[in-house]
Structure formats: C-alpha cells, structure tokens
C-alpha cells in the first residue's frame, strides 16, 4: 500500500454542537418518574384488589373451608404475578459497575431467557391458581342454589376458564415470546461476533 489514508483525520472532522446539559436533566427526570409510576400503578391496583377480597372475607364471614382456600389461592395468584414484575425492576437497576460489551450481551441474553421462562411458566401458574381459587370460592354460594342452577353456574364459569386457558393464554404467551425471541436472536448474533 503506497498511500495511507488518514482515517483519524477524516473522523475528527465531524463536529457537532454540544446540546445544553439542562435538556439532559429534564429527560432523565422524566424517564425516572415514568418507570416509577408504572411500578406504582401495577402494585397499587393489585394491592387494592387484594384488600377488596380481604374485605369480602371479613364482611361475609364465609363458613366453608373451600371459600377460604379459594380466597387465599386468588391472592397468591396475584402475588405470584407481582413478584417477577417487581424483580424485573431491581434487575435493571442492580448493576454496580458497567460491564464490558461482551458481559453486557451475555447478561442481556440471560435476562431475556429468564423473561421467556417467566412469561411461559408464571402465566400458566397464575391462570391455574386464579381458576382454582375462584372455583373453590364459588362452591359455598353455589351449594345453596338448586342443582340445575349450580350446574349452569359452574358450566359457565368453566367455559370462561377454558377460553382463558386454551385461547387467551397461548395467544398472550406466543405474542410476548415472539418479541423476546427476535431480540434473543439479535443478541446471540452480536455475541457471536465476539468469538472469532
């Protein structure tokens, strides 16, 4: 090669005005409050539901053990939904020192795999617990109805659960996983560039 092109010289011709630092502060604060708001809204709404269910227990004083188990299972289902949701936020903020790019990609891949697992398994567990809980809870009240009405009530409830289980649940899982899986493929691709 006779001539050496001075790439560095060309590179350094790129000049751009440094934006005002205040703009950055505003943006950062906005982002911070937005993610905090999301966390609060989800937690508070589920907490209110739990309080409401607790109130039903206190106010109507159910007699049968099935009702009580039903209520507990329903609350458990909601807590199970809440735990990984909150954990996700601590995973995002936990990082102490910035990892190098290789480690960063590996962490991202791990995080995505955990999310795939959570969304598949946790969503199913959530549905099972919620259905069982509501089914048990209803028993006390249904048992006071005539047999025909009891069967109709349970038939409708089971039909509703079936729609959830066989239609809504797989649809939600496929949709969420499709997004995660494309990201996983992209991150794997980047990670492979690190080998060689």
């Amino acid at each position: 090669m006779e001539t050496n092109i001075d790439l560095k010289k060309i590179w350094n011709t790129q000049k751009i005005e440094t934006p005002n630092v205040e703009i950055l502060y505003t943006k950062a604060n906005k982002l911070k409050s937005r993610s905090l708001l999301k966390l609060l809204v989800v937690n508070i709404s589920l907490l209110l539901t739990i309080i409401f269910i607790g109130f039903i227990w206190y106010y109507y004083q159910p007699e049968l053990i099935t009702t009580k188990i039903g209520i507990l299972l329903t609350i458990l289902a909601m807590l199970i939904f809440l735990l990984p949701f909150n954990k996700q936020f601590s995973l995002l903020t936990k990082n102490k020192t910035e990892p190098n790019s290789k480690e960063c990609l590996q962490q991202l891949i791990k995080l995505k795999e955990i999310q795939v697992y959570q969304q598949t398994t946790m969503l199913s567990v959530y549905f099972i617990l919620l259905s069982l809980g509501i089914g048990l809870y209803m028993f006390e009240y249904v048992s006071k109805m005539t047999i025909t009405w009891g069967i109709i009530t349970y038939a409708i409830t089971i039909f509703w659960f079936a729609i959830n289980w066989f239609y809504l649940r797989p649809k939600a899982i496929t949709k969420q996983n499709a997004k995660l899986n494309t990201l996983l493929v992209e991150f794997e691709k980047l990670n492979n560039q690190m080998i060689d």
Binding site: E98, P99, S101, C104, L183, F187
Partner: peptide, 12 residues
Amino acid sequence: RIASNTCLRQIQ
C-alpha cells in the same frame, strides 16, 4: 463502555 453497551442494546 456505557456508550458501546447503549449502542448494542439499541435493537431492544
């Protein structure tokens, strides 16, 4: 490091 990781994560 932060800048490189931000770039690589951009596909998210």
